[in-house]
Design a binder for these strands. Structure first.
Lengths: 210, 210
DNA sequence: CCCGGCATCATCCGATCGGATGATGCCGGG
DNA sequence: CCCGGCATCATCCGATCGGATGATGCCGGG
């Protein structure tokens, strides 16, 4: 076993979290923290400058959100792996982040040992997912109400959530009321639901709205 | 000015956050961290044992949530002030925590200096609120859609969010359909909304549902 | 070239909703 | 003791929804 430490860049807009992560990894054997970034843009800069093995990336940051930063990293062809930091399993940005190229997820409330394991795994290119996230991915693939809504369907649903009646939705979107109803029928089918109120609820649960 | 440091107990289920806060306060002038707790019950124990000036308390913790712990602290007549740690300004538990006796709020992503200021202020018994929280309190007091929903109204709204028609809601709750409609009318008024779909949306936005 | 998904539209109609109006009983604070 | 909030109920009715059915045009993958 080589003793080469895993090199890290930490990107989080919370000073407390940055400090906490830095301390935990700095005091552990086998890790070297190369830098801390407070937003996505800075994270990309540091990743380019220091060429770390792993970037720990918070998703919600002002001035350059995590998802765009992840895209930018892979666009620049950097070799670093990105581990996304999430506060809750139910974070609605997790799936987009995977699509953008994240290697895995890290729950911020994970115990120390899990953090170490996850970072080491990510450094080796292995995908790291919490059970909850993994099962969400699976349920996204199969099961009822899986299909993603189309752009137009999301337009309609957003207006529905504001209490807009079908006729006004039609006016706003410059389509006929019949088309609005048609979209709604499709939305109900895709979300596995019977009326607009339930559709809004499911959309919130899945992070499609709010 | 006395040089007596402000004594602290930190209660958070996230090891990372605990570590970060501990480090930040330990390395600053004028603070002494007496202990760390991983849940509400432990927080109460430590507060009783160490008699700190301030308890930094996360709201969402397994095994004894923060709000109950705050209530328990004031019930036991401990002199310590409680500063609630929140991740987002929009945390729906913030108001209950104030009612339970919290002296103020601390956003976890606040800069170091704000943390210090907030803790010192709390130690002196001054209320510490972030602007966002303060404005929420204000808007809770006046403006449309302020009043909290009654228990029965929440029952109805929960069923509405599942797509239950009024007649079935009536059956489930053992009341007449007229009463269901009456509750709904009140819900619409309180949430400042015109139909069930929008009511569900507002309820999600405010953390009443989901 | 065919098929499926998307977006569009139309008609018909029973079901459900939401507003208006009015009423009763209980309870707790002032 | 009065009043407001909550919970309950009733009737009436126009407005809106949602399901059924059928149709067209476009586009992209196989």
């Amino acid at each position: 076993m080589t003793e080469t430490p895993v090199t890290l860049v930490i990107a989080d807009d919370h000073p407390v979290v940055r400090h906490g992560l830095h301390g935990i990894f700095a005091s552990a054997r086998g890790f070297t923290v190369l830098g801390e970034a407070a937003d996505g843009v800075e994270a990309v800069e540091l990743a380019e400058r220091f060429d770390p093995d792993v970037v720990l990336m918070d998703l919600r940051m002002p001035g350059g959100g995590g998802v765009e930063a992840i895209r930018e990293l892979s666009r620049r062809g950097l070799r670093c792996k990105v581990l996304v930091l999430t506060t809750y399993d139910t974070d609605s940005d997790t799936l987009p982040a995977i699509e953008a190229g994240a290697t895995g997820y890290l729950l911020k409330d994970a115990p120390r040992e899990d953090l170490f394991t996850a970072v080491r795994a990510a450094a080796e290119g292995r995908t790291v997912l919490s059970p909850a996230i993994a099962s969400r991915l699976v349920s996204r693939v199969r099961g009822p109400g899986n299909t993603a809504l189309s752009g137009r369907e999301r337009d309609v649903l957003r207006l529905v959530a504001k209490g807009t009646p079908n006729r006004e939705i039609a006016a706003v979107l410059f389509i006929s009321e019949a088309t609005v109803k048609s979209h709604l029928t499709h939305i109900y089918g895709k979300l596995g639901v019977k009326d607009r109120a339930a559709a809004v609820a499911v959309a919130y649960d899945r992070g499609i709205l709010g």
